[in-house]
Simulated assay, not measured.
Amino acid sequence: MTSLKGERRLETELVHAGELRPRIAGAVNAPIFQSSTFEFANEGSYHDVRYIRLNNTPNHVILHEKLARLERAEAALVTSSGMAAISATFLGLLSQGDHIIAHRSLYGGTHSFVAKDLPKLGIETTFVDADDPASWQRALRPTTRIFYIESITNPILEVVDFMAVIEFCRAKGLVSVIDNTCATPVNFRPIEVGVDLVLHSATKYLNGHSDIVAGAVMGSSGHIEAIKRKLDHLGGSLDPHACFLLHRGLKTLALRVRHQNESALQVARFLEQHPAVAKVNYPGLETHPRHARAREYFRGSGGLLSFELKGGVAAADHLFGRIELPAIAPSLGGPETLITRPATTSHAGMESDERAQQGISDALIRVSIGLEATEDLIDDFGQALDGSY
């Protein structure tokens, strides 16, 4: 990676960081290198041989440089999905007998992986309240290696005490790992406050167009090298065309996220005042229990919110039957607003009691705000809520 001296502002880095110089045949956009194999150049290691599965073609290298600059990291690695980034990180840094401390409120796929898959490999996890440092000390073992959290949790929109987590990890010699998907580097750069590793489901905001699946890991060169070596064997590489689409999507990230920040806040305020709504989860609201923390560390509260209706699941079904603009679909971060019940999609793989422990009821509705006019979204939610209370 090139030196971070002379860092430019985020918007400029999104467009220019990592770009090929000189340009290939003068092309302003880097081409898709649709080749699985490259000429041998006396590479000293198997992991350095230029090959798609080893995530080191020109399309990968461009992304690695750009993503590292966005999170102010030494190095970055792209993967075939967010879960590929998460699984390669755990498997690259942990061995049989190791232990993880993790916040209890995690994305459903991550929770299932650490709770059900890793134990089969002899790696155990203790779930804790990331706002209760006393529970961390009780969970700590001599074999603990990683403390895993999310900057903004999905779908309850918690903002954990990550500064206390960082201090705890430094004192105990743990690697702090944070999933920054929902906040994005536009709103929060965890490495700047001392986090060791940052993960993203690049499927979401980084790409921003609902047309690829990808993941990313950013951190120190040593950590990224260890994770890459594991990923090289697992085979979770990102194909060149998906690299190209992610590269393209990143260039508009700042514009998209800032609109979504403002739009989500206005929609959340509308829902909070609606008589059919029982509760709204959004850290930008003054009523959010961690609003002050979000304001202190985040440049915006993101495009994701969730809420519950007073009428429960029946009212949610009524809303879904009347809503016009949002697509009823999982995932988040795209140009179109998406609406779903996490109990039936993103967290369906968890047992009902596990969801309840995270505060995810069957009636909880999650909304990923897109790029539509905010006024039109508010009008649509208004008409859809008619008769639901």
Rank of each mutant, 00 (worst) to 15 (best):
A84H: 11
E19M: 13
V128K: 13
Y148P: 00
D317K: 12
L14S: 09
L238W: 04
G109T: 14
S105T: 15
A25C: 03
A226P: 00
S45Y: 14
G194A: 04
A202C: 06
L305K: 01
D353V: 13
K228S: 05
G18A: 08
D131T: 14
I212L: 03
D379C: 09
T57I: 08
L253G: 08
A202S: 07
T143Q: 12
F162I: 11
C169R: 10
P142F: 09
H223P: 04
K172D: 03
P335M: 08
F90V: 13
T57F: 01
R269H: 05
I32P: 00
R138L: 11
P342H: 01
A278P: 08
G208R: 03
P185S: 11
D98C: 05
A30P: 15
I24W: 07
R258D: 09
P289S: 11
H247Q: 14
R8V: 14
A216C: 11
H64R: 08
G208D: 02
I100R: 08
V280M: 07
R341A: 10
T126I: 03
G302N: 04
M350K: 09
E11V: 14
D117L: 14
A264W: 00
D376C: 06
G44D: 08
T125D: 11
E39C: 10
I101H: 06
K204Q: 14
I100H: 05
R248L: 14
S220K: 01
T37A: 15
A88W: 10
G312R: 02
V267H: 02
Q137L: 15
G6H: 07
E65T: 06
P330C: 01
G333Y: 06
L174M: 00
R138S: 12
T184C: 04
I156H: 06
F168E: 00
A348C: 06
D211P: 01
T287V: 06
N154V: 11
Q273G: 03
V257S: 05
F33D: 03
L67P: 05
S87W: 03
Y282H: 07
A314F: 14
A183N: 04
H241I: 09
A68I: 08
D129T: 07
L54K: 15
P155T: 13
Y389N: 13
V177R: 07
T340H: 12
K66T: 13
F320S: 01
V257N: 01
G194N: 05
A214C: 02
N180H: 01
A356T: 13
E286Q: 09
A343G: 12
T344V: 15
L121E: 05
T12W: 11
E324S: 05
V186W: 02
P289T: 07
A17M: 07
G6L: 09
P240Q: 08
L285S: 01
G370Q: 04
L199C: 09
Q34K: 13
S331R: 10
F40A: 11
R8G: 07
F113L: 11
A27D: 12
V186H: 03
G359K: 04
H209F: 14
G26F: 00
I212E: 04
K116E: 11
F40N: 14
K172T: 05
H223C: 10
P330Y: 02
F127G: 01
A88F: 13
I52K: 12
